[in-house]
Computed example of a mutant assay.
Amino acid sequence: MSLPAVIAAAGILLAATLLHYAFWSWRLAVPPVEDELLSVPTRDGWTLGLGRCRPRVAARLPPVLLVHGIAMNRQAFEFGVERYALAAHLARAGFDCFSLDHRGHGASRRGPGAPRRWNLDTYLREDVPAALDAIRAVTGAEQVLWVGHSQGALMGLAACQRYPERVAGIVALGAPAHFDVQERLKKLVLLRFTVLGRFTRVAARMLAPLSGHWHPAWADLAINMRNVERPVYRRLLANGLENLEAGVLEQFAAFIREDSFRSMDGEVDYRAGLERCAQPALFVAAERDGLAPPAVVQAAYRRWGGPKRYVVFERDYGHTDLLLGRGAPEQVFPVVREFLLAHSRPAGLAAALEERG
Rank of each mutant, 00 (worst) to 15 (best):
R43N: 14
D44R: 04
G45S: 05
T47Y: 09
L48T: 08
L48K: 07
L48M: 12
G49R: 08
G51M: 13
R52T: 13
C53V: 15
C53S: 15
P55L: 13
P55D: 11
V57K: 12
V57M: 10
A58P: 02
R60I: 09
L61V: 15
P62K: 00
P62G: 07
P63N: 05
V64D: 03
L65G: 04
G69L: 08
A71C: 14
R74P: 07
R74F: 11
R74Q: 15
A76N: 13
F77Q: 05
F77H: 04
F79Q: 01
V81P: 04
A85F: 02
A87D: 13
A88R: 14
H89L: 07
L90S: 03
A91V: 03
A91L: 08
R92P: 12
C97I: 09
F98Q: 01
F98C: 02
L100G: 06
H102W: 12
R103N: 07
A107K: 14
S108D: 14
R110V: 07
G111S: 09
G111E: 09
G111Y: 05
P112V: 10
P115F: 05
P115T: 05
W118G: 00
L120W: 01
L120P: 00
Y123I: 09
L124R: 01
V128D: 09
V128K: 09
V128Y: 10
A131E: 05
L132Y: 00
I135T: 02
R136H: 12
R136P: 03
A137L: 06
T139R: 03
T139H: 02
E142W: 00
E142Q: 08
Q143L: 01
L145S: 11
W146G: 04
S150L: 11
S150M: 11
Q151A: 12
Q151N: 11
A153L: 08
A153Q: 04
